[in-house]
Amino acid sequence: MNELNLLPLIGIVIVVFGFALRFNPLLVVCVAGLVTGWAVDLEFLTLIETFGEKFMNSRQLASFLLILPVIALLERYGLQQRAQSWVASIKSATTARILSMYFIVRECSAALGLLSLAGQAQTVRPLLAPMALGAATNLHGELPKPVKDMISAHAAACDNIAVFFGEDIFIAFGAVLLMDAFLKENGIDGIEPLHIGLWAIPTAIAALIVHLFRLARLEAKISHEIAKHTNKSTILNAGLS
């Protein structure tokens, strides 16, 4: 029996110690890859070629990571404030209408497979939440923090719920293919991804109706919370005086 060679696992050790010592992550991973290639007797040119091939195959991930610093720069130069002030200038805009419109668009786009069209980091935080807050501020004036938190939570929930129920309609979505494979592995034939996508449509419609109903009640809930906060502040100020 051949002796087990544990030397190629040295790359894992380098990654663990490199991250523990807070070295540059990119440098740590590159060194770990080079050392692992040396441990398995990989030629230098072949190793460099492998690095280039893996980078090209995962370049889409690198482009996705670029979104985060771009959004951070936009926020630093006032993206949220611009969105909030723009919505505040529209007299007919309300929090419920903005969130309802976003929910419909997000669920329909998810059903078409356009999951990266929007999201929490690139849309909800810098645009949707400030727009919803701007509409509420335009109607009710300065908002207390609990109300701001509630509106921001509803904005985040719109994205999550719309994507969750809309993506199953897209037959090339990973979860749909996983369900199809699971059914076939367990001897359940006659089910295709198209069938799963079609049966997801009634659920998506039900989710749309239920959530739009919840958003229709949001304006009254905002008014109630503001009134409650105002009464509490009045009683507190009266007690202090």
Rank of each mutant, 00 (worst) to 15 (best):
N186L: 06
I48C: 15
T94E: 01
L114E: 01
F51G: 04
M101R: 14
G141E: 08
V70Q: 11
A175S: 13
G134Y: 00
T95Q: 04
D149M: 03
S63Y: 15
A121P: 01
T203L: 12
R76C: 08
N24S: 09
D180F: 05
V105D: 08
E53W: 04
V16G: 07
I171F: 02
I14S: 12
Q122S: 15
S63L: 15
F173L: 02
I222N: 02
V13T: 09
L198V: 15
V28K: 02
F51I: 12
I161Q: 02
D180C: 07
I201T: 05
P130R: 01
I201G: 04
Q84W: 01
L218G: 04
K91W: 00
L42P: 13
G141K: 06
T95L: 02
I98S: 01
A110H: 08
H140M: 04
L115T: 11
R82N: 15
K145N: 03
A238L: 12
L127N: 08
S233H: 14
F103K: 08
R106W: 03
S92N: 04
A216M: 00
G197S: 07
K145T: 03
A72S: 15
A206C: 08
L198W: 09
A121D: 04
F17V: 14
I48T: 15
Q84I: 03
F44N: 06
T230P: 00
L198K: 10
A156H: 06
M131E: 03
A156C: 02
I226C: 09
E167L: 08
H224W: 07
G18S: 04
D41R: 08
L115C: 02
A121V: 05
H195R: 10
A118W: 00
M56L: 12
A200C: 13
A62N: 09
S223N: 13
T234M: 09
V29W: 04
V13G: 13
L34D: 05
K228P: 02
I169Q: 08
P69S: 09
L183M: 13
E185G: 15
V28R: 03
H229I: 00
I191Q: 10
L27R: 02
